[in-house]
Amino acid sequence: MRRAADGVAVIPRLLRAPVLHFLLLGGLLYAAVGWWPVRDGEGPGIARERLVITVGQIEELRQDVITRSGRPPGPRQLRDAIAAAIDEEILYREALAAGLDRGNTAIRQRLVKIAGFVADDQGLDEKALYALALDLGLDRSDVVVRRQLAMTMRLAAGNTPLAGEMPPGDAELEAYLAAHRDRFSEPARFRLTHVYLSEDRRGSAGETDARVLADTLRATAIVPDMAPESGDPFLRGHHLRWQTRQGLRSMLGAEFADAVADLEPGTWSDPIRSPYGWHLVWVHDVRPAVTPPLERVRDDVMRAVMDARRDWRVSETLKSMRAGYSIDIAPYQPDAAAITEARDG
């Protein structure tokens, strides 16, 4: 087990408490300084622990991607998978160093269970089984235990403020609101009429039909509300009143919603594709999005800022943790068979 370089076991006392308690400690946390045994990673005399990723492990990761997604990973995907595996390993080891496995009833119970499967003597009691599990190193080898510890460490990292961190003030909230207007705004709404050309009825000829019809509509200056009769009937109606972009997306697909968002009101669009066919759209009116003042959405913004904070804390913590490891990734060349597999998909 790794100890901090100066020989003192820096095990934050708070980490022994259930992780959820972090959420309740509120302001107390902000008084905390430097809980983590942060290393600067450079300099003589600091022992760095070795972390090796073998070819075998990379092969396994590659297989995981294939199983999950159905196709082999590209180089970038593989790099990401390896980086994620390294992070998991580091979190796991740091969790051990912080003693998170001690006093964790879930882990203890799991170890007792596995030991029960492998014990020669079936009459052992819970305490003896736990001791057996530790003897056999099951707490180090069991995948589920490792995963749990890594996850707990990740949660702890996310919930512990970094040194010098201050609670988000109004300035930060306002900035976040301004930068993420879309998330908090009352969305824009559109009132439109559309002419529909059905792919079921017309096949691919529908696209030409749509273009011809668009020209006709523009030439004849027909009243927009009467125009749908020159196309096919659409079950959801031809006059969509005050739908948001998200609403249009749900109804008619992303391509349609995106196209409508960019249309000039008071004119017929070129044919716009939907999963059903083609549409000529006349936007009558747009009600623009409204960004509410911070006061109205303070809770939502705070929640979002804290989520981002947690992610940032985890990535910063991982960065400083990584500095304490010397990481060796075996050079990996997918063999010829794998290359063929990748090419042929």
Binding site: V19, T105, A106, V144, M151, L155
Partner: peptide, 18 residues
């Protein structure tokens, strides 16, 4: 998580696309 006890750990996420 499938192995969770007393509400810990929460390891999965879910979200509606629509």
């Amino acid at each position: 998580d499938a192995s969770a006890r007393a509400g810990k750990p929460q390891t999965r996420t879910a979200q509606l696309l629509k």
